[in-house]
């Protein structure tokens, strides 16, 4: 009897299963039959040129309005993701690190983090953390990300530098502890130092229970977060898959060959 046989019933070997996904924005088809399967703890990278559908994939997974799934399915831990509201998806353990984190004037970062965590705990039937417990918990997460208490007091992303915004995304991921994190161009707009902090922060959150889908145009974040699998997205479909070496190959040769293959 293998160890897997002793896992509780809810343990699933497939965390995310996307089948033949077609999605449109404003009636225009963007994803055209995308397939992707990820196991628990795996890190997959999706790379592709601008306009290949990378951000559309992240928004479809997170449930943004205006991204219409016309065909196919997405199962998350065996459940139909399309049936869930965005907040329910988060409650189920999904997290999207935004390419462009949104500014929310009038809501402090601390209040935002606390409200989010408690909403997810409530969804799971867990007790809310009180203010002291929460503060202690957040402080544990902020240290490695070089995030000050002063930043936590500021309104969410308002007046944040590009690096602060991305670090704030990683902080949210650390606080909410998702089972699947989708990182949409988390490396964009970062200088070398900020990239290092973010890259190390994300790497520190790798665990056997947490899968990551790293969506990126460049290979540089993948120097920190070494992927188990790399997929090339072109014209709305996965056109090639491989190991981490594929990312390096793309960095050298570019997407030209793949885009032609897709056309």
């Amino acid at each position: 009897m293998s160890i897997a046989d002793h896992q509780p019933e809810e343990f699933v070997k497939i965390m995310l299963e996307i089948k033949d996904l077609h999605a449109s924005v404003d009636g225009k088809p963007i994803l055209k039959g995308l397939d992707l399967t990820m196991g628990p703890g795996e890190v997959h990278a999706i790379m592709g040129p601008n306009g290949s559908g990378k951000s559309t994939l992240s928004y479809v997974i997170a449930g943004r309005d205006g991204y219409e799934v016309t065909e196919g399915s997405i199962l998350f831990n065996g459940r139909d993701l399309m049936e869930m509201e965005p907040d329910e998806r988060a409650g189920e353990g999904l997290f999207l690190a935004f390419q462009y984190p949104v500014e929310i004037p009038g809501v402090s970062t601390m209040n935002f983090l606390k409200t989010s965590l408690n909403a997810i705990r409530a969804y799971r039937g867990e007790d809310e953390l009180d203010a002291m417990e929460f503060l202690k918990f957040v402080r544990e997460q902020t240290a490695t990300l070089n995030i000050t208490d002063e930043l936590l007091k500021r309104a969410v992303n308002v007046g944040f530098s590009g690096g602060e915004k991305k670090r704030n995304e990683v902080l949210q991921m650390a606080v909410l502890r998702p089972s699947l994190a989708v990182l949409d161009e988390t490396d964009s707009g970062l200088d070398v130092d900020a990239l290092k902090i973010v890259g190390e922060g994300v790497t520190g959150l790798r665990s056997p229970e947490r899968s990551m889908l790293v969506i990126t145009h460049y290979q540089r974040l993948l120097d920190y977060v070494i992927p188990d699998r790399v997929h090339v997205l072109a014209d709305g479909r996965i056109v090639a898959s491989g190991d981490a070496d594929l990312a390096r190959e793309l960095e050298e040769k570019g997407y030209a060959g793949f885009s032609k293959a897709a056309a």
Partner: peptide, 17 residues
């Protein structure tokens, strides 16, 4: 702001809240 609303909901906060 629809973007802000989606951001909050993507963090698990129900729509009305």
């Amino acid at each position: 702001d629809g973007d802000a609303l989606f951001y909050l909901r993507a963090r698990g906060i129900p729509e009305a809240q």
